[in-house]
Simulated scan of single mutants.
Amino acid sequence: MAVSSVKEIIKTAPAFAQLTDLAAERLGGQVLYATDDFFAEKENLLKKGRGIFITDKYTERGKWMDGWESRRKRTTGHDWAVIQLATPGKIVGFDIDTNFFLGNHPPHASVEGVYLDDASSITDWEAVTWEEILGKSHLDAGSQNFYECKSEKLYTHLRLHIYPDGGVARLRVYGNVFKNWNVVGADETIDLAAAINGGQAIACNDMFFSDMSNLIMPGRGVNMGDGWETKRNRTPNNRDWVILQLAIPGIINKILVDTCHFKGNYPDRCSIEGCLVATGENPLAEGTNWVTILPEQKLSADTEHYFEKPFVSTGNFSHVRLNIFPDGGVSRLRLFGNKA
């Protein structure tokens, strides 16, 4: 494969970096195989964050690095790793992050993909019929290397090639979750907001301390950084807010607002609104009809707050807005219900 001539590396985070990371370990992504991970384990590729550097930390094999790092290749060929996505999806872009890999990063990388209904019996990954979805592309050292994916297909597994060897801190695979809603019954209760189902956090007025997308991740927050937290606001009667696009328009029957780990910085109160807009329409547009689902409710520190019907408004919603008063942090938001 020749080095891509038409691609230019994107220097700033593109819009697709706001989409779901389909490969994220905390969603269920896994690194199944690597040709070599002598210096640093392949599993690090999908961990949260960009990776850290500890100056004086060494292992019996050399310098400890927070990423996937192969040994210096003294034979022909190159190294590669196989990633199982957390969920099937359409890939929009990649971030091949070489954070802290400076004298040991790969000069180039490429990505192949495949859709597999069941990969449990595969023992020879080279025998799989892979399709190239990112040609051999330049990598900068110590940098986030963003590239678009032009394929319109769905994928379940990827193969990341590095040329010829070296270290990559993280691989992010941004895209849209695919869920076959035809097999989900109309009476089946699901979390309509969950990222693994296709929910997305699309806008907020503030996320100074931690990202809004944490709200819809699996499980309870692991610490105070694993939630959505706004800065301290000194404006009287302030309201902070975040908008979630539901995985599918649906009817909400039960709500969970979890302030796990937020003790001296939880919001005093919250409320939830909803709207129904057509696919592709902007819920932030002027004139969108937002209606109250859950009126203002008192919150407590480090607590799971459950709210059930009857709500003020019922019916189908495509988006919800969580309002917190006056500011603070929420770990998780669950919106249990049925598809429309």
Rank of each mutant, 00 (worst) to 15 (best):
V114I: 14
S137L: 09
L158M: 11
V6S: 08
G93V: 12
L22Q: 06
V6P: 00
L158T: 09
T288L: 03
L160S: 11
I243N: 03
I251N: 14
L244Y: 07
C270H: 11
I255L: 13
P106G: 02
D211K: 15
A278T: 06
R74G: 12
S70G: 10
A186H: 13
G51D: 01
L102Y: 11
L27C: 02
L192V: 08
Y266I: 08
T230F: 10
Y266F: 15
E148H: 12
V82F: 03
V291G: 04
Y174P: 15
L27K: 00
L139C: 11
P326A: 00
G337M: 01
F262P: 01
R232P: 10
V257L: 12
K309S: 14
L139G: 06
D327V: 04
Y147T: 11
A186I: 14
T55W: 02
E126H: 08
I196P: 01
T288E: 07
H157A: 05
W228S: 01
T259W: 07
I202S: 01
V31Y: 11
I54Q: 04
F262M: 06
D240L: 02
Y58S: 04
D226K: 01
N99P: 00
V3L: 13
P106H: 06
T288Y: 09
I96F: 03
E188G: 04
T303K: 15
D302H: 13
I243H: 02
D191Q: 03
S213P: 00
M212Y: 06
E69V: 07
V168F: 09
I272K: 02
L333W: 08
